[in-house]
Design a protein around this nucleic acid. Structure first.
Lengths: 229, 229
DNA sequence: CGAGCGATTGAAAAGACTCAACCACCGTGG
DNA sequence: CCACGGTGGTTGAGTCTTTTCAATCGCTCG
């Protein structure tokens, strides 16, 4: 690892802390995490962790976005979520004592802090609020995944694309969804060509605008209706 | 609720305890749970909990099987898992502080113990091993659901049916899979007719035998190969 | 004995995928 | 500065899986 280490990054001044898993930490807890963490700048398309490896800690996204996905037998990725600044990822496997089942790769230049297992678990044991937050996060994640299973099983590709666009619109704060067509297809669970064709239809309906590779939602209401979401 | 209460059921003598979430509990912990629990006999096709309701406790399956599912806008069920004796269900929502996202219904006559939120959480707080078990269970569940999403997105219906048959074969100890064609379809995420047609194909390949509604796997290896699982 | 539900079959239609070709943009190196 | 190569985006056509709808069958239960 020869990634640049951002010495100056401090949890105390980190604006995403207040929206992250760590929002309930006391001053002392913040200090512990701050001392333990290691902040790294990732370029676009760099792996953060890889399925099959054993987790050594958790990742807190200070800025940027990553895709969390798993690779099928055919080599096709299935994106499970897009994580953005303030999200803490990779802690699921810590508790299941399994290797990672998912991989994560940056979608844009990202600044990501790493907290070692021991330090993270120590804080979880010390701070009941953090433990509650972890339990809640895991539970929410599990519930959302059950809903995603239903979506995959029961919705048409067209509806799924509408849903994913709505989800992404919440993630891209400037409302300029900026994902490759392939990533989009791998999130929706379809072929790239199908995504392109459906996007064209949505554009013709004037539900979206397409600026090069970025997508801007123009009629949320119609998309919601299409998605029956 | 006027369900028969099985006074005699005791956690100490309960053979499923050693395989359940509660396997690590000490004598004292077992006693607490034993005093707190309330064991009920459910007939076939009775609801255990319903999505949208607020959870009041967790359910431990002493005997029998239940389907855990969610209902789509079209009214079609999507089965997320089949829980069997020894499984503890319904605790996800306890920690996410949400209403149930899933429903559960018995598939056969089942004896199910209920433990109230307060009593369960008390034990979780008191017994670090139980807490670890809960964290591990939630984590495993979340990981498995991610894999299920990938399966839904990338596998053909034929492959998904093969996978589900393999999963069910692990659950039905006598290897006589006993689910309605409709439930099977709602698990695989397809139409009932498709399931029937594919089962016929599997039968012709001599991968399975069909005895009325029950299915017996005859060639696990071929099914695994078909599933690329 | 009839009602009704679950299982089954058939035929037609639709949605999505695959494959192949083409285009557009971008950075590189000559 | 421009030709080149490569990647990602787009389009078209044909194919195939899966769905839908309709009808039939078989069994159980009142």
């Amino acid at each position: 690892m020869s990634k640049p280490n951002l010495q100056h990054a401090s949890c105390h001044s980190c604006e995403v802390r207040h929206t992250s898993l760590f929002k309930s930490l006391c001053q002392e807890g913040v200090k512990s995490i701050d001392d333990a963490k290691d902040c790294t700048l990732y370029k676009k398309n760099e792996p953060v962790f890889v399925e099959g490896a054993y987790p050594k800690g958790v990742f807190c996204i200070k800025s940027g976005k990553i895709k969390v996905f798993t690779i099928g037998e055919s080599g096709k990725e299935q994106i499970i979520r897009i994580a953005k600044q303030g999200d803490v990822v990779g802690f699921r496997s810590l508790f299941s004592e399994e290797p990672y089942r998912l991989s994560a790769t940056t979608l844009e230049e990202s600044s990501i802090c790493f907290i070692k297992i021991e330090d993270f678990k120590e804080q979880v044991n010390k701070e009941p609020d953090l433990l509650q937050a972890v339990l809640k996060e895991l539970s929410k994640e599990s519930g959302e995944r059950a809903m995603f299973i239903k979506t995959m099983a029961q919705k048409t590709v067209r509806q799924r694309l509408a849903i994913i666009l709505l989800v992404l619109d919440e993630i891209y704060k400037d409302h300029q969804i900026n994902l490759s067509r392939e990533d989009l297809a791998n999130y929706v669970g379809t072929a790239t060509e199908t995504v392109i064709r459906l996007l064209k239809e949505f554009k013709e309906e004037e539900w979206i605008e397409i600026h090069g590779r970025t997508i801007e939602l123009k009629n949320i209401q119609s998309l919601v209706q299409e998605a029956e979401f």
